[in-house]
């Protein structure tokens, strides 16, 4: 299988490295996986079998993954280039979903599978993308877009395939969880806990997507489509974030033996992201940066999964599981 990597930041480099280190696994599956191209916001490289180590090193030392300029019409390039799977790791944009949306659609329309970690296109145009994949007989996989290494989508779609999933509640943003937990444990005001999260590299310089619940709402929209079979988008999710949570609120919650957590919820006709009072000891009262999802199904009852929601290797792990699934389906 020939793969083209779109975007070569943290996740793009992570999946390139994992493809390099998992060659024996692909061999054992009787499949050769080679990187035949990669591009970032300004440069492009292509070749028969590019060395992931070389690509990462080049990106680190020069700031560009390729030595050619990125084509003016990337969409046409994607349509015409000879490869089997697009690995889309371009930035999430929740207003217009670009550039990922155009890249993904170009790949699907030209008969290529897509694996993406990018939430924007899925949260805004899920049904369009699914229809394009179906119409062209190819697969669209996106485990990495929700919860990083927490295997919620494939778990629900494959292992729980016969279940009716009644509801889902989850901690879908590790940064918010870290901030709320630091406020509780250390009595820090919100903005100080946020600064700490930024210093530790958990939160972006512009943390709006995290603290205003945008990132969690995008994930709720993706999950609602992917595992509840709804036809909704990001704007259908009722959303409030955590920036107005005060130390007093955290302290009053503690008196009630509870913590405040930003919870994404699907079920009972509700699509919501909001801070909630969670009793201590409840699975969703965890601290740290882990993501966690608690689903209720009609037969199995309650199932809780957790995992690291972000990080280079964690996200690459989720994309690798999608890659393996495409290889298996091909067999």
């Amino acid at each position: 299988m020939k793969v083209l990597i779109a975007g070569f930041g943290t996740v793009g480099q992570g999946i390139a490295e994992v493809i390099g280190t998992r060659q024996s696994l692909f061999d054992a599956m009787g499949e050769k996986v080679s990187i035949v191209g990669a591009f970032d916001s300004s440069s492009l490289i292509y070749g028969d079998n590019l060395d992931p180590k070389y690509l990462v090193e080049k990106k680190k030392t020069t700031g560009k993954v390729g030595d050619k300029e990125i084509p003016d019409d990337v969409a046409s390039y994607i349509e015409e280039a000879d490869f089997d799977i697009l690995l889309d790791t371009t930035p999430t944009n929740i207003d217009h979903a670009e550039p990922g949306l155009t890249y993904i659609l170009s790949a699907l329309h030209s008969g290529k599978h897509v694996i993406t970690s990018n939430k924007g296109p899925l949260a805004l145009k899920f049904s369009t993308l699914s229809a394009a994949a179906d119409a062209n007989g190819v697969q669209l996989k996106y485990e990495a877009s929700v919860g990083g290494a927490m295997p919620i989508i494939n778990l629900s779609k494959q292992l729980l395939a016969g279940e009716n999933i009644i509801s889902l509640r989850g901690i879908l943003n590790g940064t918010c969880n870290f901030i709320l937990n630091r406020m509780k444990e250390e009595g820090l005001p919100f903005y100080q806990a946020l600064r700490e999260a930024q210093d530790l590299g958990y939160a972006e310089t512009d943390p709006t997507y995290d603290i205003d619940g945008v990132d969690s709402a995008a994930k709720v929209a993706i999950l609602a489509n992917a595992i509840f079979g709804m036809d909704v988008n990001y704007y259908d999710v009722v959303r409030s974030g955590i920036r107005n949570i005060t130390e007093d609120a955290i302290a009053l919650a503690a008196e009630e033996n509870s913590v405040i957590r930003l919870i994404g919820e699907i079920g009972g006709g509700k699509l919501e992201v909001a801070p909630r009072l969670v009793p201590m000891g409840h699975p969703l009262s965890i601290g740290g940066t882990q993501n966690m999802a608690n689903i209720i199904t009609d037969l199995a009852g309650e199932i809780t999964v957790s995992g690291r929601g972000a990080g280079k290797n964690e996200t690459a792990s989720a994309m690798l599981s999608d890659l393996i699934s495409i290889i298996r389906n091909k067999e």
Binding site: R169, I245, A249, A253, I260, I263, A274, P275, L277, H282
Partner: peptide, 9 residues
Amino acid sequence: YLLVRGLEL
């Protein structure tokens, strides 16, 4: 103002 609802078990 901000509403934080309890998460019923």
